[in-house]
Amino acid sequence: MSKDSLIGGSLWEQYSDKVTKRMNNPSFMGELTEEDAAEKGAKLVVADYGADSCGDAVRLYWLVDPESGKILDAKYKSFGCGTAIASSDVMAEMCIGLTVDEAVKITNLDVERALRDSPDRPAVPPQKMHCSVMAYDVIKKAASLYKNVDMSVFEDEEIVCECAQVSLSTIKDVIRLNDLKTVEEITQYTKAGAFCKSCIRPGGHEKRKFYLVDILADTRAEMEHEKLNTPPEEKTFSELTLIQKHKAVEKVIEQFILPILNADGGSVEVVDMKEEEGSTAVYIRYQGACQGCAASSTGTYEVISDTLKQKVDTSIIVYLL
């Protein structure tokens, strides 16, 4: 909630000028025919995505050069709101000159960014993001038709939301690409769950194989897992988990400190570690000959502390127990 949200009806005020211009004067709207294809010695691709009942439907036409795989021309037709038409228009323009393999990599975010007036201001309000997702899905459809392969080559064809025809991979993709955290956000981006709501969670009027709440939880967990599995050497010390920090400390102790202490018949163990504001506390306890040694609280302590600061991280503070 904020001051801006107190007055309704501001939807169109949030559209960029580019969206408005494309809606009023779409440049790539139209059809391409077999005759157009023959003239250029190209292959015609016609792909449909969406349906009237969803409130969004788009048809993409491509002329593809069979030798280079390059898209020579692109046009579209659209049943949808202003942002759907504007997104389709910019999407068709972006396809021209790319190979089919390159075009498949265009995402809804590229489409939305191309419609921005300035880099830091979204072209459309969040509830309109789904219109650009549609523009990106139809490219995959066109590519699958051109290559005569199933769309599953480009995406998992598992449909999660039948009403809006949204696939499992689209949902996973938007969660990852946009760092989505709630089911409501998924609905805003993809329209999944906006209609009959059966796919949101179990207990709706239709039983589903996948539910948005589960996909969200699983994908978020995967994202967390991937973050953890990034090799520690690629991370800075502060990005490591506490266990990874502990391992790094133990490694240095084993390699550089224990040989010195062992030579005098002593040893040291890490009893605990704690993450504190801007520092990492390492609690150690002497063992063997170090216990009760006069130097252990002064010289030896400094050696341990300095070595850990140098070899692991300067934020480490060593506490003697």
Binding site: C81, G82, A84
Partner: peptide, 14 residues
């Protein structure tokens, strides 16, 4: 048929 409501409203408003 064939015209989405918001797009229609947009054109009328224009």
């Amino acid at each position: 048929r064939g015209i989405e409501g918001e797009a229609f409203l947009w054109d009328l408003n224009q």
